[in-house]
């Protein structure tokens, strides 16, 4: 298995990492995710790492990078399901995953994304729904 599958649910992309993240898989995931966000114009990215027992500094940085990439592409990233042991290790390593939002599980992550998307829609959408599409279309 060379790639981590990316699932689209509504306007959210769900990435569930079930394998040991080797460096090349992580890099591939980073690229794939960028492509997918652009292709589907997703509003949020949910990364489920509940199956990961080891998160090293490389993976930590990858999570931060993914969050930054998504933000540039106007999508929010939420990392969900981190194990306590992993969290302790990251803190001991001094990695605080800057810019990454976290939630306890996928359910709460979805709720978090939905809430923040709603807020953004409220801000961006004084008119009706179509207005946003026409505004963002020339930008692409």
């Amino acid at each position: 298995m060379d790639r981590v599958p990316i699932l689209k649910i509504g306007d959210i992309l769900l990435v569930s990492i079930q394998v040991d993240l080797q460096d090349h898989i992580a890099l591939a995931l980073q690229e794939d995710l960028g492509d997918k966000i652009v292709a589907t114009s997703a509003r949020g990215v949910l990364i489920d790492i509940s199956a990961l027992e080891i998160v090293d500094s490389f993976i930590g940085r990858m999570l931060s990078t993914i969050a930054s990439i998504s933000r540039v592409l106007d999508a929010e990233t939420v990392v969900v399901g981190m194990r306590p042991a992993v969290a302790i290790t990251l803190v001991e390593l001094g990695l605080s995953l800057g810019g990454v939002r976290t939630a306890l599980d996928v359910d709460r992550g979805m709720a978090m994304l939905a809430a923040s998307t709603e807020v953004r829609d409220d801000e961006l959408e004084p008119d009706e729904h179509g207005a946003i599409d026409t505004v963002s279309a020339p930008g692409d």
Binding site: V80, M82, A87, I88, L90, V91, E92, S96, L97, T102
Partner: peptide
């Protein structure tokens, strides 16, 4: 502070 940071990483 470390405990609080770790809890944040979990989403709490």
């Amino acid at each position: 502070l470390k405990t609080v940071q770790a809890a944040r990483l979990l989403g709490a």
